[in-house]
């Protein structure tokens, strides 16, 4: 393994590191100690004509295959020699469509465990992107001046971080609920206002809150209605009254038996194939 690694390293020095078309490969390692390195595949962030993107064109570097131990801060530090950086965002997958980002609560949406991720690095100037694409590396995630925690040390600090501050949690819950209550109150007020008022085409919205409440519009409720109908109809039907009914029920019984017989035969066939009939 070591031998292979060395050979590859030697070859890498001579030739360019292979990279997919449009991307450039930047080797990255955890620290000096490691022999082999992962490769970041980076290119300028582009979207198709007409599509919207939340990242600024020209200034954004799109990076694939960011190793799990490389955090936002870390990546920002590693790429800062190329030019001042505005923001770094790490994601599970490249986001294809435009997605709105809500601020996530620290208490209710704990950070997921990192795997290999993709990064969007926004430089302040477009020059930064070009500089980053020519980086030779290998980049080192953890250096003596900026050690990165991993293993035991990381877990211990994670454990300490996960201890929630009850006060902060309470404040967050209270603000959220206040906003929620306000929203609900507004909606109700609006609904009350609209109650019984025809819209421009003359339709009146009937709601549960009106003077004469109606069935809730749920699937369960409509199924219940159907079931009730069916039962009502079944009660009225006469069974075993006509001769053809007799005949048919007999035939039905026979058909059931036949079906059962076929099923049984299939099972037997299977058991026989598995040699399940050998009592020894």
């Amino acid at each position: 393994m070591v031998a292979r690694g060395k050979k590859r390293a030697a070859r890498d020095r001579e030739t360019r590191i292979p990279s997919p078309p449009g991307y450039s490969a930047i080797p990255i390692k955890f620290s000096e100690k490691q022999q082999a390195s992962h490769y970041l595949y980076a290119r300028e962030h582009r979207v198709r004509e007409g599509a919207q993107s939340s990242w600024p064109q020209k200034r954004t570097l799109f990076v694939l295959n960011v190793p799990p131990y490389c955090s936002e801060e870390c990546l920002s530090r590693l790429l800062s020699p190329c030019g001042p950086i505005q923001s770094v965002e790490l994601q599970e997958k490249p986001d294809l469509s435009e997605s709105k980002k809500e601020p996530k609560s620290r208490f209710f949406h704990p950070k997921p465990i990192p795997g290999f991720r993709v990064a969007y690095v926004v430089f302040q100037r477009a020059r930064g992107v070009a500089a980053a694409l020519t980086l030779k590396g290998p980049l080192l995630v953890s250096t003596e001046s900026h050690p990165v925690k991993s293993g035991i040390h990381k877990w211990i600090s994670d454990y300490a971080d996960a201890v929630a501050d009850p006060e902060a949690l309470r404040v967050e819950v209270d603000t959220f609920m206040e906003a929620y209550d306000k929203k609900i109150a507004e909606e109700e007020a609006k609904a009350k206002e609209e109650e019984g008022v025809p819209d421009e085409e003359g339709w009146v919205k009937v709601t549960r809150r009106g003077r004469r409440p109606v069935l809730p519009r749920t699937e369960a409720a409509s199924l219940r209605v159907l079931e009730r109908e069916r039962r009502k109809r079944a009660r009225k039907e006469l069974l075993n009254f006509y001769a053809w009914q007799h005949r048919e029920s007999k035939m039905e019984h026979l058909a059931q038996l036949r079906k059962k017989f076929e099923e049984d035969k299939q099972r037997i066939e299977l058991l026989r194939a598995q040699r399940k009939f050998r009592p020894y």
Binding site: R4, F30, A36, S37, H38
Partner: peptide, 8 residues
Amino acid sequence: NIEAILED
């Protein structure tokens, strides 16, 4: 990238 993964 096996070698790097083993080191990971």
